[in-house]
């Protein structure tokens, strides 16, 4: 009895699936797969090699400082970094007074001690990077209806995040003729910029790094667009996960110990079973 019921239930699901399959297959055969501009022209991030990559990766602090400079002088006008506190910049190799000076260079929200009104004050190391806009509405109004995302986690919030940021910054170009021909509606509208590394190809952010020498590096590195893009990507990888280096450095001793302990456990297992495995 139970077999008959189960076979009937099985047939119920089977026929429903077969019906879905047939309808889907017929539709697919007739219409094919609709091609989209994103599918045809979106590109995966370029290769980017950073010192922090790989199982032995360590941050290149010189590069992080350069990247921070690019963030401060270029990106921070529109993009916040709200999960990063100024105090964490000491991890980039800045001294305490330097961090104090950097923090004081940013205006953070505060209260007037006499009137209690909202105002701004110079930042201190315990403050977090301030948001460049008071709220989302202000951000939209100032940016052609697009909200510039906070960058604290941008490298973790995108596939292959560091390379994504780098590719986006260096990927601006004119829309290819083939795109305009095949998908006229995908042409960048007013205030949009074609960038094949952006998921929907059209980015509301104007190319932020326009020319070599846009920032002047203190360490004498030539500030090409390429170099600045790499540096700021490296900085944002750090900002996304400041504990990355400690994580990798902790991993090796842990794995080493586990390997040692597991070998011992195996030997103990073998010795305990020695007289049970084979015939006496």
């Amino acid at each position: 009895m139970i077999r008959i019921i189960s076979i009937l239930v099985g047939l119920f699901f089977g026929v429903a699936l077969a019906w879905s399959f047939v309808v889907g297959a017929v539709t697919f055969a007739q219409e094919g797969k609709p091609e989209t501009a994103e599918h045809a022209f979106h590109e995966y991030p370029k290769d980017l090699h950073l010192a922090s990559d790989g199982a032995f990766g360590k941050f290149d602090r010189q590069q992080l400082q350069r990247g921070f400079q690019v963030y401060k002088e270029v990106c921070s006008a529109c993009h916040g970094l709200k999960h990063v506190a100024f105090r964490s910049l000491e991890q980039l190799g800045y001294t305490e007074p330097e961090v104090k000076a950097i923090a004081a260079g940013f205006q953070v929200p505060g209260l007037d001690p006499n009137t209690g009104e909202q105002t701004t004050r110079p930042g201190v190391p315990t403050d977090y990077f301030p948001a460049p806009f008071a709220n989302d509405i202000a951000a939209r109004a100032a940016n052609n209806n697009a909200i510039p995302p906070d960058l604290s986690l941008i490298t973790k919030a995108r596939h292959d995040g560091g390379a994504y940021v780098y590719s986006l910054l260096t990927g601006y170009q004119d829309p290819p003729a083939a795109l305009l021909q095949e998908f006229p509606e995908a042409a960048p509208g007013t205030g949009l910029y074609y960038n094949p590394y952006f998921p929907n190809l059209n980015l509301a952010m104007a190319p932020p790094l326009m020319s070599d020498g846009q920032v002047t590096y203190g360490d004498g590195t030539a500030a090409t667009v390429e170099q600045m893009s790499k540096d700021v990507s490296a900085f944002l990888v750090w900002a996304g996960e400041p504990t990355l280096e400690k994580r990798k450095q902790t991993g090796w001793p842990v794995l080493g110990f586990l390997l040692f302990a597991t070998v011992l456990a195996y030997l103990a297992y073998r010795s305990i079973w020695a007289h049970k495995k084979a015939k006496h």
Partner: peptide, 26 residues
């Protein structure tokens, strides 16, 4: 329960103690 030569007992003892100690350290 197996009976073993003195040598075997010492070696087994050592390995087991080492394995359990490693687990303890971990």
């Amino acid at each position: 329960p197996e009976e073993m030569s003195g040598d075997g007992v010492r070696r087994r003892d050592f390995i087991n103690i080492a394995a359990v100690s490693a687990a303890g350290v971990g």
